[in-house]
């Protein structure tokens, strides 16, 4: 029974982290890279329009960071709930 509540807590912590990271994932790609791109194109980053930068550079760089952040934080959560390998 104690195992069961520990597993439930672990799963909730995992889902919460996934939700936060997927919100960032959707924001940089769908929102900044597509929906708001025409508006963000009025701002320039270096020499290129910001919406274009998000679509062709920024979103991909963020994706890589998101996966490593997930892996790193899950190391901690795995240990905290004692389910690590």
């Amino acid at each position: 029974m104690e195992d069961k509540s520990r597993y439930e807590g672990y799963w909730k912590a995992n889902i919460r982290l996934i939700m936060i990271l997927l919100a960032i994932w959707a924001f940089v790609s769908y929102v900044c890279g597509i929906l708001l791109a025409p508006m963000l194109n009025n701002i320039t980053l270096g020499q290129i329009p910001l919406g274009f930068w998000f679509a062709q550079q920024g979103s991909m760089i963020t994706f890589v960071i998101l996966i490593f952040v997930y892996a790193k934080l899950m190391d901690g959560i795995d240990k905290e709930y004692d389910v690590n390998e």
Binding site: I18, L21, L22, W25, S29, G33, I34, A37, F52, A55, Q56, S59, M60, F63, L66, I67, Y70, A71, M74
Partner: peptide, 29 residues
């Protein structure tokens, strides 16, 4: 393809990389 599509080439750039976030968070482990 990007040279000819310009901005719209982003559908492939984001589409073919964003899937790995789904894979890493939702499926692979």
């Amino acid at each position: 393809i990007i040279a000819f599509l310009g901005y719209d080439g982003a559908i492939y750039l984001m589409g073919w990389t964003g899937g790995y976030v789904l894979l890493a968070l939702l499926l692979a482990p």
